[in-house]
């Protein structure tokens, strides 16, 4: 029983981080069809912002979170205006362009902050472990879990219950008709992209104390996050939650049964098979195909 609880908690912890990173990607890909390979670099920027704010301005991790969101979102907005905007008609080319942007961001950070590993301190109030189901777990992981849940709820409300969200849904359904009704599709895209980038920044800041911060850290996340989005179904936020939990648990359990490499390979293969038979994802939004 102890073992099951332990595995469950490990899986949930991996899954919540996955979801956090995938959420921004899901919004950008699901609404705009842009495959953002620079998403991992947005995560990395968030982590570096947390590090910089902590070591130069002396701001702790928790108070700096809103600031990090704004910084990375502004960054994403700039990239959308400069590059992505020109590529909406060529979705496959966004893979290439965002990859180029990712390479540049990595190198810029390496030049500015140095290539060595950086560390972000845990907030002191969250550094003690807590006990759940008889298992000790770092309270920061619990914090991430609830933080992700809150962010997810907020995102869902933004999309489904605000006028800005309604404009976004209209543009996703039919950009031309939405424009006829006076919606500025260009602006909606820019804001959406910025929001997705901001979420990635937050993810980076939250992951930073758990792992070391390096210019290459983003590349490992982007593939996993992408798998979450694909498995969950492109336009379904709830699908992303389930698939993040599923993939998190799967890699947790498989990693325990064999080694991490085989676990990763097995999960990837399962995803490939899934794409083949359900390209719309496990939880595709119903409606027009």
């Amino acid at each position: 029983m102890d073992f099951v609880a332990q595995q469950l908690l490990t899986g949930l912890s991996i899954g919540s981080i996955l979801l956090l990173i995938a959420l921004g990607l899901a919004i950008i890909y699901g609404t705009m069809g842009v495959i953002n390979l620079a998403h991992g670099e947005f995560v990395m920027l968030g982590a570096y912002a947390a590090w910089a704010l902590q070591s130069f301005a002396g701001i702790g991790l928790l108070p700096s979170l809103p600031l990090i969101f704004i910084i990375v979102a502004a960054f994403g907005w700039g990239i959308e205006r400069l590059v992505i905007r020109h590529l909406y008609r060529r979705p496959l080319d966004t893979i290439l362009a965002t990859w180029g942007i990712g390479v540049m961001l990595q190198q810029i950070v390496r030049l500015l902050a140095g290539g060595e590993l950086r560390y972000v301190q845990l907030p002191p109030s969250l550094s003690r472990p807590v006990t759940i189901f008889g298992q000790e777990i770092a309270s920061f992981r619990v914090f991430i879990f609830f933080g992700v849940a809150a962010l997810f709820a907020l995102t869902w409300l933004l999309i489904n219950r605000t006028s800005q969200g309604m404009r976004l849904r209209a543009v996703v359904q039919d950009p031309a008709i939405a424009s006829c009704f006076g919606i500025n599709a260009d602006r909606v895209y820019a804001v959406t992209f910025a929001y997705g980038a901001g979420l990635a920044g937050l993810a980076g800041a939250l992951v930073a104390p758990l792992k070391s911060v390096s210019p290459e850290m983003g590349t490992t996340y982007v593939v996993d996050a992408f798998m979450v989005v694909v498995v969950g179904g492109v336009q379904s936020l709830f699908g992303a939650v389930v698939s993040a939990a599923l993939l998190g648990e799967a890699s947790g359990v498989l990693g325990f049964l064999s080694n991490d490499t085989v676990a990763k390979a097995a999960v990837l293969l399962a995803v490939v098979v899934l794409i083949r038979f359900r390209p719309q994802g496990l939880f595709a939004a119903r409606g027009r195909a």
Partner: peptide, 15 residues
């Protein structure tokens, strides 16, 4: 800086 230059050239070519 060469990776930076390569990345920039690449983005410009795609655009």
């Amino acid at each position: 800086t060469w990776t930076l230059i390569m990345g920039a050239i690449f983005v410009l070519v795609v655009l």
